[in-house]
Structures are given as C-alpha cells and as structure tokens.
Amino acid sequence: MIEIDAVTVSFGGVTALNTLTVQLDAPVVGIIGPNGAGKTTFLNVLSGFVRPNSGRIHAFGRELTGMQPHQRAQWGLRRSFQKEQAVDELTVEDNVRVVLDSLPLSRDVVEDALTGALEFTGISALRRRSVAGLNAFERRMTELARCVAGSPKLILLDEPGAGFSQSEVATLRSVINGIAETIGARTFLIDHDVDLIQATCQRTMVLDFGSLVTYGETASVLADPKVRAVYLGMEET
C-alpha cells in the first residue's frame, strides 16, 4: 500500500500537484491525464527528485518523504524515464549491475539477480553486448531490466510504450503483467496508450491540473464521464 497524503508541489506560481491524497493498492496502477496534469511530477515526487512543499508519502509502512533519491532506490524504488537512460558505453549486463552495486548482496546473489532480470525482460541473449549497438526497444528493455533487478518494492514507469510498434508493445505488456507475480513489486504506469493501461492496470488514477479526478477500477474509470471530459476538454455540466 502506497499512501499519498496531501502532497502539494508548486513551481513558482504553477501548482503542479494540489493537495493530492490517494491510497494506491493495486499490483499495477495506471496514471493518466492530459499533458501537464502532473503525472511526471508525481513520479518525480515519489522518486525524490522533487521535494513536495507539503504532504507525506508512505510506502509499505515506511515514510519516504525525507529520503534522498539514491536511498529510495536502495530501499526498493525503481523508475524508468520518458527518454530511456541506458548507458551506451556499458554492456547490457553492466547497465543492470549498477543497481545491484549499491545493495548489500553477495556475489552469487548478484549474478542470480542479473540473470533473473535479463531473463524476465527477454534480453539474456544481449547480456554481453554493448548498449551502443542496440535498437530502441532493446534499450528500453535494458532499462526495464535495471528496474526489476534486486527485488524492488515499487517500480515507476514513465511512458515506457511510447514510440514502439504493436508487437513490441505486446511484449512490453506481458513483461509489465509479470512484474507483480515474478518480481513481487508494485508498478505505477504512466502512458497515453489507453489499450496498454487497460491491459495491465487493475486500477487507474486520473490527474488533471495537479488534482486527483478519480481513482478506481480501470474499466469504470475509463467509462467515467468526468474522465472523458478531462480527456476531451469538455466542461462538466
């Protein structure tokens, strides 16, 4: 259970998140909303890049609010970025190994975790390849392998499916669907692809202008007239 308690973030005069209070409890939670709704700001608050002006975040009974980003990662928080951040000059394996370096694990456990993460994301064959020679999807999967390595507790994915073909998104979908069972972590997924959200997220929250519009079962959220209004930009009556 991840509890967001009255989190407010403002940049200058812009309120990016407005006293956001929500308890997120599904294995995979979708986060949707129009551009500028505060979705990425929400992930940045969770990963510690943005300090909220007020409010608290608890995850599985642990208060995250005061922790540094790298401490949150060591605690078990992982994230991917809108623009993937795989490192060209390292091998696929070393790109994943970075995240295990900061954890107090024995050599054998590290090797097992590496193998497990690469198998889970389907890139074992690329293990010793340099990332510089990979295509966009393989790079995205490398980043995803970094997210799932080392028994994470919560994984934040920021538009992982953007720009990929249907078959690639299908692979991505099955990987995301496997996270809860195989990795044992919760996932928060931002994406504009409503099909991907529908196929992976049990529950979905909708943000607009930094405020929570609604949170609930994905199917009913997507059918909600308020949500349709937010997406189509219509005034509620």
């Binding site: 980003p69 790298h70 990662a73 992982r78 951040q85 970075v98 370096d101 900061s102 954890l103």
Partner: peptide
C-alpha cells in the same frame, strides 16, 4: 537522475 534512481550515491 538515472544514476540516482539506480541507487548511485
């Protein structure tokens, strides 16, 4: 940002 979110101090 990527380094920090991978646990690098």
């Amino acid at each position: 940002a990527a380094a920090m979110s991978s646990g690098v101090d």
